[in-house]
Write a protein that binds this DNA or RNA. Structure first.
Lengths: 295, 295
DNA sequence: TATATTCATAGGCACTGACTATCATAATAA
DNA sequence: TTATTATGATAGTCAGTGCCTATGAATATA
């Protein structure tokens, strides 16, 4: 059986005439004649009763036609949804980002992508790097904005932004007197860190060459917002990504901000996606737009 | 697009693996690979995202698969109903007969056909010859039991029974004294006829060489049952088919029955059907069974 | 690094669907 | 009836397609 055969059957039934049906299908009459015979032989029943006057459906032919039209409806639907989806800038676009990026970036990204790609249906998901990586690999996400390079060769990353790191401290803190800060200047026992699982915690710890056990118990919290509040309350110092400042999160009365000058005191944001993704064109366009937001 | 392609898509989606999918379809892996590429090129979208680890559906691939499965369901249904219907002795069988035959014959015919062809779904319709002929020609009936030969070469007829005609008269009528009746013996002015449209009326009139106008007004009625009752009431005489007697319809106190000996005083019952009917085998078997009833 | 796995590609072959030309049969007109 | 027209079926031919085997490229795994 064949979709074409079903269309032929439908045409013959509609026209009641092989010649006219053939014309409507843009094929010759013998083609229809032969193909219908094959279909009937295949199914083992007579679908059309031929007369010199009219070609009419048998009872079983009517039932087959009804089902054939169901099938053809589904096939038409396939053609129609794929015709829409063949536009690379349409359809659902699922992207994720980590908690230390999303509050500073996602609102702008959603706005820009929404206007640049109006036919895209944007779906956003926030989670830690490991979860987002899983989502990427099993196809639940199209892209993720991460601050770490891909952990597997199945993923690719487009660099978005080399983000400086900042030290924040209470206004009265003695760091306030220094202009240019180095990691070696920091009183590491006063550092407030994010809890485990956050890649930004790992980066901070690596940078300071701390044993992660040293400060875990008392000073790890689950969000940058909490860290900022604690610093503002004079409970310690911390390192935060620069986007926090440009988003206005550090504009608090009791907080001092200093750039961190040490070598490697940046984190590289990138747009990560499956190497096998069929939406490469769209993803690269999206990366360009996000980079634009970050200028 | 092609039904086979949809099956391949389904298999790849299920197995997440071209090789296994190919095995399940009993084709080689390159076949699947090439065919899916063609399908994707045809539709203009990527349906499957290929990895060395797994072949997974894209979002549009999932939507296409859902519709493909709708189509395949309909196709399976076609295969299943045609497999059933490929038995020539199954399915709906629509037959008709004229009013001057059905009361004597159809009950027995229904019983015999029902037991001989248990998978047949019998549908019966009674009407006059002209209507039944229309029904035959437009495909609303498979066969009809008629007492006249086909009016068009598009219909064929299998002879069933050469039915004698009988004269009925009131017991006290002077015909009662004659043993063998001829048409010339009949007092034609006392004849009660069926109304126009009934072929049996036409046969009777032809036989008696009456002008149909002569007796129309007073003595035409719409059923044989009425005729028999009128004769029983002494209102006239009539000619009835022999089956009326074997069915016991003439077993009434005041009715005398005499065979009509004239040449051509019979009517030939036959099973009429479209020459183009695809159910020739079944129809011939049915004719045989009806003939059996008539012995 | 070597091996195994997986999907893609290339070349060859058989089958199928399409065409044109023609036939057989039936409906219609002369 | 006989001639004409119309319809579906058949025959022969050819191009396209689906399938195969053999092989390649890229990745995962030992």
């Amino acid at each position: 059986m064949n979709i074409r055969d079903l269309i032929y059957l439908q045409a013959i039934a509609r026209h009641g005439h092989f010649g006219k049906a053939a014309e409507s299908c843009n094929v010759s009459q013998p083609t229809l004649s032969v193909q219908l015979q094959k279909l009937e032989a295949d199914l083992g029943v007579t679908l059309i009763e031929r007369t010199k006057r009219a070609a009419m459906l048998t009872p079983i032919g009517q039932r087959v036609l009804a089902l054939a039209e169901d099938a053809l409806t589904a096939v038409d639907a396939i053609r129609s949804i794929t015709a829409e989806a063949s536009d690379p800038f349409s359809g659902q676009f699922r992207f994720g980002s980590i908690p230390t990026i999303s509050p500073f970036l996602v609102p702008d990204v959603l706005r820009v992508l929404g206007t640049t790609f109006p036919r895209l249906e944007l779906v956003f998901r926030e989670n830690i790097t490991d979860r987002l990586t899983e989502n990427l690999l099993n196809g639940d996400l199209d892209v993720a904005i991460l601050a770490t390079p891909p952990v597997t060769s199945r993923l690719l990353a487009i660099p978005l932004y080399d983000e400086p790191l900042l030290v924040i401290h209470p206004i009265g803190h003695n760091l306030a007197e220094l202009d240019k800060l180095n990691v070696s200047d920091l009183p590491l026992d006063q550092m407030i860190l994010l809890s485990e699982g956050h890649c930004f915690r790992d980066q901070t710890v690596d940078l300071c060459r701390l044993q992660s056990r040293t400060t875990l118990a008392e000073t790890s919290v689950t969000s940058l917002e909490t860290i900022i509040s604690l610093v503002a309350a004079g409970q310690g110092i911390s390192i935060v990504p620069a986007l926090a400042q440009s988003s206005g999160w550090l504009d608090r009365p009791n907080i001092g901000v200093k750039p961190l000058r040490s070598k490697g005191a940046t984190r590289q944001l990138n747009l990560t996606f499956r190497k096998s993704s069929p939406r490469r064109v769209l993803i690269e366009a999206v990366a360009k737009q996000i980079s634009g937001v970050l200028v």
